[in-house]
């Protein structure tokens, strides 16, 4: 009974699925979905080698400081970084006084209240403050940017497919719309106010090219030349740190754990073999299965015409 019901239900599902398959295939061949500009011109992120990549990855503090400088001088005008606090900058190699000075001189002040009157006010940032947003709220951010809200950058390196490589590619990927694209998709012309970038999912990005010329940021002596490429790499490295400040600690903690577990596995395996040796001997080939006897048996079997 149960099998008859099962067969019926199974049959129903299979029929419905094949019906759906048939109608899908029909629709596909009658009117194949049109090719899209995104599908043909979107590019995967370029390769980016950072010191923090891979299981031995460590942060390059010098590079993080440069990236922070790029964020501060270029990005922070529009993009907030509100999950990172000034105190976190110690990890970049800044000392107490430097962190205090950075917080104190941050262009945007922290919202507070006037202690006398309770009116909204601002005050200078201190190390325990999080980076203040450039806009008072989301509406202000939209209003100032043609309704395209600049996203918070704290987690950007984890919140996009490709991570840091995506950020680097996007920053260096601005170009004029290729003629081939316009020829093939005349309607896909980048709308006014947007900017063509093949690394962006739909190719047209509201953010204008932020890193435009060499020397836009002046690096301290002893650092590489601030080319657009270098600045993009540095800020991508910085955003890896803001997204996961514990990355280096994670890698450092990981190796002892793995080594410990490997040794534990080996010891436990030896112990297992040791314990089981006894069990295996208990069913060791004795009697007719003993190797010596087995040869005899095989001979006997052959004689008797039994094929083993």
């Amino acid at each position: 009974m149960i099998r008859w019901i099962a067969r019926l239900i199974g049959f129903a599902f299979v029929v419905v699925l094949l019906w759906a398959l048939g109608s899908n295939l029909k629709a596909y061949f009658q009117s194949p979905p049109p090719a899209t500009a995104e599908h043909e011109f979107h590019k995967e992120p370029k390769e980016l080698h950072l010191a923090s990549n891979g299981p031995f990855g460590r942060f390059d503090k010098q590079q993080l400081q440069r990236g922070f400088q790029v964020y501060k001088e270029v990005c922070s005008g529009c993009h907030s970084l509100n999950r990172v606090a000034f105190r976190d900058l110690h990890a970049l190699g800044y000392n107490e006084a430097e962190v205090k000075a950075i917080a104190n001189q941050w262009p945007t002040e922290v919202a507070s209240i006037n202690p006398e009157t309770g009116e909204p006010a601002t005050r200078k940032a201190i190390p325990s403050d999080y980076f203040p947003s450039p806009y008072a709220n989301e509406t202000a951010g939209r209003a100032a940017n043609n309704n395209a809200l600049p996203p918070d950058l704290s987690l950007m390196a984890k919140a996009r497919e490709g991570g840091a490589a995506y950020i680097y590619s996007l920053l260096t990927g601005y170009q004029n719309q290729p003629a081939a694209l316009l020829k093939e998709f005349p309607t896909a012309k980048t709308p006014a106010g947007l900017h063509y970038n093949p690394y962006f999912a739909n190719l047209n990005l509201a953010m204008p090219q932020p890193l435009t010329s060499e020397g836009q940021v002046t690096y301290a002596p002893g650092n590489p030349k601030p080319t657009v490429d270098q600045m993009a790499k540095d800020v991508a490295a910085f955003l890896v740190w803001t997204a996961e400040p514990n990355l280096q600690g994670r890698h450092k903690a990981g190796w002892p754990v793995i080594l410990f577990l490997i040794v534990a596995t080996i010891l436990a395996y030896l112990s297992y073999r040791n314990i089981w040796a006894e069990a295996k001997r208990k069913v060791a080939p004795v009697g007719p299965m003993d190797p010596a006897n087995k040869a005899k048996r095989t001979r006997a079997s052959k004689k008797a015409g039994i094929d083993e």
Binding site: F260, A264, L267, A268, S271, N274, I275, R281, A284, V286
Partner: peptide, 30 residues
């Protein structure tokens, strides 16, 4: 008898101490 012989031989072959050591080491590691 064969099995018994085997068992005796095993007992003799392996000094208990060495065999236990690896078990103790594994458990202590855990």
């Amino acid at each position: 008898t064969l099995e018994e012989k085997y068992a005796e031989q095993i007992e003799a072959d392996h000094s208990l101490r060495r065999r236990d050591f690896i078990n103790i080491a594994a458990v202590s590691f855990a």
